[in-house]
């Protein structure tokens, strides 16, 4: 069912007429919500039957629309925004393996974000952020149009980096998190994650990333 809903959603996004686009989306939204597919419940469903959609194997472009779909189904009935808790869980589920700063982002949002919802714009920009900004934030432009929450996040990371520069290089995956990456082996190590520009070290870094992923997967398996 989720799969069909996603197909319909992607179709609606491709619809050139903005009016029928809106109508289809709101119709879909009503349908899903009538069946109880919203908020955390929707996320559970996604986690359970996600295999049909197989978002880990998606190309960047297809994933973009899937990513929006996740936000779409996570909204509470009658609301336009997603609760922070739901959004955090959703990020951990779908961005896993696609966003190198995911853990830190999530922990930052859960501890510093004051509002109790995540705006759709912020949600969408996070994907862009994960794709265009280097892991070490070296190419982050504060004058660019990032949402304020991302600005604050970068500020926070840079601030903490000044205090403990040594710990930056390796960030172990937080395998104790409830949404830990159990499916990580299915993700190509290079998909969607932004490292520094590929220089001579690319081969080895990709290899070591794969190794780290494997290790994490192993650890998860033991749990």
């Amino acid at each position: 069912m989720l799969h069909q809903a996603y197909e319909e959603f992607a179709g609606a996004l491709r619809d050139p007429s903005s009016q029928s686009n809106k109508a289809r989306l709101s119709h879909l939204s009503d349908q899903l919500q009538a069946r109880g597919v919203y908020g955390d419940a929707a996320l559970h469903l996604l986690q359970k039957y996600g295999g049909q959609i197989n978002w880990q194997g998606m190309s960047q472009e297809v994933f973009s629309s899937f990513y929006r779909f996740v936000y779409f189904i996570c909204r509470e009935p009658g609301k336009r925004n997603v609760q922070v808790g739901t959004a955090l869980a959703a990020w951990q589920l779908v961005l896993c393996g696609r966003f190198r700063l995911l853990e830190r982002w999530c922990s930052y949002v859960s501890s510093h974000h004051k509002a109790n919802v995540v705006l759709e714009d912020t949600w969408r920009q996070v994907l862009d952020f994960s794709r265009t900004v280097h892991e070490d934030l070296s190419n982050y432009d504060p004058a660019s149009a990032w949402p304020v929450l991302l600005d604050d996040f970068v500020e926070h990371i840079k601030g903490s980096r000044r205090h403990r520069p040594a710990q930056l290089s390796v960030e172990p995956l937080d395998i104790l998190s409830p949404w830990a990456c159990r499916t990580i082996t299915a993700v190509s190590p290079r998909s969607g994650s932004k490292r520094r520009p590929p220089d001579v070290l690319e081969e080895t870094s990709a290899a070591s990333a794969a190794a780290a992923a494997a290790a994490a997967a192993a650890a998860a398996g033991e749990l």
């Binding site: 705006l119 714009d121 949402p147 304020v148």
Partner: peptide, 10 residues
């Protein structure tokens, strides 16, 4: 200003 823009997008 950025916050206001975000609010207007919303």
């Amino acid at each position: 200003i950025k916050k206001r823009i975000e609010s207007l997008i919303e």
